[in-house]
């Protein structure tokens, strides 16, 4: 059965409603923080702002704390409430999503660290165009994934899954052009390698955003689409929408 974002506030136990609501709020707070981390890391890189990059690196601890807190809440709900059906799926989705968000946070701090080393090298940085392009995509994916989680929006989630394929393609072509840069100018190898790490991190962020979207599908429809073929996905998820 498909559920909507109101589903988790209709329990006979108000306490339970509140616990689930808090869980969602905390996840969204974590999502917002992580989203900002990614954005700040990219901004720091593009604008050569090492102070901002340092802040991003340091803020990762906050993300980790939130991750631990959410995990603990989930454990408590599982132990005390023994949730079933959509409640169970919500808790599982939150556990998985928080772990994905934590990884995204890690990727953001990785980008920040590379941005710091790039600003310190004082070389001309090649490949920032690709970075900006992919980062916009990835940030949109992350934003959409979080929105779909907040709204239980299946269509948005599927859009995120599809976007990930685009990002992967773009990542491939960006890599190829960066390899060309390296071949052209051997002195730039170290800075281009840093940019490659950053691209790699962004691609990973995209993958995690894709996972988030998959958790949304699991949460809303009870379908586990993690390892299924993306082409048939829309048919499976949205066809059953109509039934």
């Amino acid at each position: 059965m498909e559920i909507n974002s109101e589903s988790h506030s209709q329990h006979i136990s108000r306490q339970f409603n509140q616990e689930l609501e808090e869980l969602k709020t905390h996840l969204m707070a974590m999502g917002g923080l992580v989203e900002k981390q990614v954005q700040d890391a990219i901004t720091a890189l593009l604008e050569n702002d090492s102070k901002l990059a340092t802040k991003v690196r340091d803020n990762d601890r906050e993300v980790n704390d939130l991750h631990l807190q959410i995990d603990e809440e989930c454990t408590r709900i599982l132990a005390r409430r023994q949730p079933a059906a959509s409640d169970l799926r919500l808790v599982l989705a939150v556990i998985r999503a928080s772990s994905d968000l934590e990884r995204i946070g890690d990727e953001a701090s990785k980008i920040a660290r590379n941005a710091i080393s790039l600003t310190e090298s004082n070389n001309v940085i090649r490949g920032l165009v690709e970075v900006r392009h992919i980062s916009e995509h990835v940030r949109k994916m992350l934003r959409d994934a979080l929105t779909s989680f907040a709204r239980f929006d299946l269509e948005l989630a599927i859009e995120v899954v599809r976007e990930d394929e685009l990002v992967d393609d773009e990542y491939g072509s960006a890599m190829r052009s960066l390899i060309t840069f390296m071949a052209e100018d051997a002195r730039s190898i170290s800075s281009v390698l840093s940019v490659m790490w950053i691209l790699r991190a962004l691609e990973r962020v995209g993958d995690h955003a894709d996972n988030l979207a998959e958790h949304v599908v699991y949460l809303v429809k009870g379908l586990d689409i993690r390892h299924s073929d993306p082409d048939t996905l829309e048919a499976t998820v949205l066809d059953r929408d109509k039934s």
């Binding site: 059965m1 559920i3 589903s7 209709q10 329990h11 006979i12 136990s13 339970f16 949730p83 079933a84 059906a85 959509s86 409640d87 169970l88 799926r89 429809k221 009870g222």
Partner: peptide, 18 residues
């Protein structure tokens, strides 16, 4: 039935909803 019931009625009963 306990992870993903097909009907809202079942869902509501299993998860203790109004």
């Amino acid at each position: 039935l306990f992870t993903n019931p097909r009907l809202r009625h079942t869902e509501n009963y299993i998860t203790g909803r109004i």
